[in-house]
Nucleic acid binder design. Structure first.
Length: 419
RNA sequence: GGGGGGAUUCCCGAGUGGCUAAAGGGGGCGGACUGUAAAUCCGUUAGCUGAGCUUUCGGUGGUUCGAAUCCACCUCCCCCCA
């Protein structure tokens, strides 16, 4: 559980550390927050709605923040938003979320909890995990709108950024309540744990402000909020999206090799942001890596990919992924770490199997039509030889030591193993 | 409650009876160029192991030799007025 090196930063106030790394986007009271974080050990929370069965890179950013905070002595409260997930956050969405069944939400929550345990130390009282279903599901409507609803001005809510883009496409009353639910969470956590701050991605700004205001109005207490830059590419597109969907932290959903490759392939312009936000390398080291010129920047990308993969999947997997990538792209290194699928030797007896169905089965192409196209366009290689005939049959004799290397396009390598 | 406008292939968006598996753009995929980068250029982009066949234009039923296009009903969405 010792992810962050002691020499990660020269600063001793975690606020300065986060600032140095470019995380901080907006704060409710910059000076007071810096002061508070320097003087006191506080409790703070970040909410995560279990809308999927795994955390993705966006969540991971928030996890990293909690890791820093914990490293510097503060206590993270991980709030699983099973209750808020039943409402659905409209922030940054152009349409309403699919309604989820309670069972799905419950299932997802369990998986979230497990993943958090990998990064945050919950031993003793070093961190807290709670779930807002605990209080939100018990609310009495009438009581709630009288006690809490009266503090919210609809006029003001409607001007909030998070609702703006929905003013045209439509916003249901259900979703409109999301902000109030999240605000109530802050109030509840303040009462339960004396939680003084809420963090979140910058898209959470309005929701966080709502909570800060509510605590002040209801209890007359000052609490604080802070948002962090979203991890986006230099073009402003959210990072961590692949054509298959999000980049997941769960290795069964995104393999460590794929995960490694994603970071290995980021654009030059994004290397600095990624290194500073997703790795715990000291900033001097980050600067040194980023200053590499031309093709040399690949060294920085390798380091980035390795460090992030190590953080998420452990050193062993990171080494494997790196070895596999090196073997595939630059040759030399051992081929055993390239993504491999085992198949029965018997399948390749006699006439063997058609190449098209093989690559389709391996999920290298989404359909057989795509497989044909790939071959027609010269995008498929077997053991370094271009496949020209889509009806090519793969037989046992074509394997060397029971292995066959398939390359699709420039970047996808896959080993077939019949041993 | 009244009036108006919509729903098109991964997304946006054209298409108002056959020439439409459906323009154009985005995205994806393949190629060239490169540094496993960016930019650019070329090709490609429903499924089925080629020609051929099957499924697609919110849903259901109908008109027609023939429908994404016409008709009826239904569902959902948006806008204006209350």
């Amino acid at each position: 559980m010792n992810f962050i090196r002691d020499d990660v930063s020269k600063h001793t106030n975690v606020f300065d550390v986060l600032k140095e790394r470019g995380f901080i986007k907006q704060t409710t009271h910059e000076d007071e927050i810096r002061d508070l974080l320097g003087k006191e050990k506080i409790k703070f929370y970040i909410g995560f709605d279990p809308t999927a069965d795994s955390l993705h890179v966006g969540h991971f950013m928030q996890v990293i923040i909690m890791m820093y905070m914990q490293k510097y002595g503060h206590t993270p409260i991980v709030l699983i938003g099973s209750g808020t997930a039943m409402v659905g956050d409209p922030s940054g969405r152009s349409d309403m979320r699919q309604m989820m069944t309670n069972d799905t939400i419950f299932e997802n929550s369990r998986k979230f909890e497990k993943l958090f345990g990998k990064f945050i130390d919950f031993s003793g009282d070093k961190a807290i995990i709670d779930n807002n279903a605990d209080w939100l599901t018990k609310l009495n409507y009438l009581q709630f709108i009288r006690d809490i609803g009266r503090h919210f001005s609809v006029n003001r809510m409607l001007t909030a950024e998070c609702f703006k883009q929905r003013m045209e496409s439509g916003l249901s009353f259900l979703e409109f309540n999301y902000m109030i639910m999240q605000s109530y969470d802050f109030l509840e956590l303040y009462k339960r744990y004396n939680c003084k701050m809420q963090f979140g991605g910058d898209d959470q700004w309005s929701n966080i402000l709502g909570g800060v205001d509510l605590v002040r109005r209801e209890l007359g207490e000052q609490v604080y909020g802070m948002t962090f830059a979203l991890l986006t590419t230099s073009e402003g597109i959210k990072m961590g999206k692949t054509q298959k969907g999000a980049l997941w932290l769960d290795e069964t959903k995104t393999s460590p090799y794929e995960f490694y490759q994603y970071w290995r392939n980021v654009e030059d312009a994004d290397v600095r942001t990624c290194l500073s936000m997703l790795t715990f390398l000291p900033m001097e080291e980050v600067e040194a890596l980023v200053s590499l010129e031309g093709a040399e920047i690949n060294k920085a990308k390798e380091k980035l990919a390795f460090e992030v993969t190590k953080l998420v999947h452990g050193e062993e997997e990171a080494v494997k992924a790196q070895e596999g990538a090196k073997a595939a792209f630059s040759g030399g290194a051992s081929l055993e770490n390239i993504p491999t699928t085992k198949m029965a030797a018997a399948d390749f007896e006699g006439d063997g199997l058609g190449i098209v169905s093989i690559i389709h089965q391996l999920n290298l192409v989404p359909s057989k039509g795509e497989a044909f196209r790939t071959i027609e366009q010269g995008g498929l290689m077997i053991d370094d030889e271009k496949v020209t005939d889509a009806r090519l049959m793969i037989t046992k004799e074509m394997f060397t030591d029971g292995k066959l290397l398939i390359k699709k396009g420039k970047k996808i390598f896959h080993m077939l193993d019949i041993n």
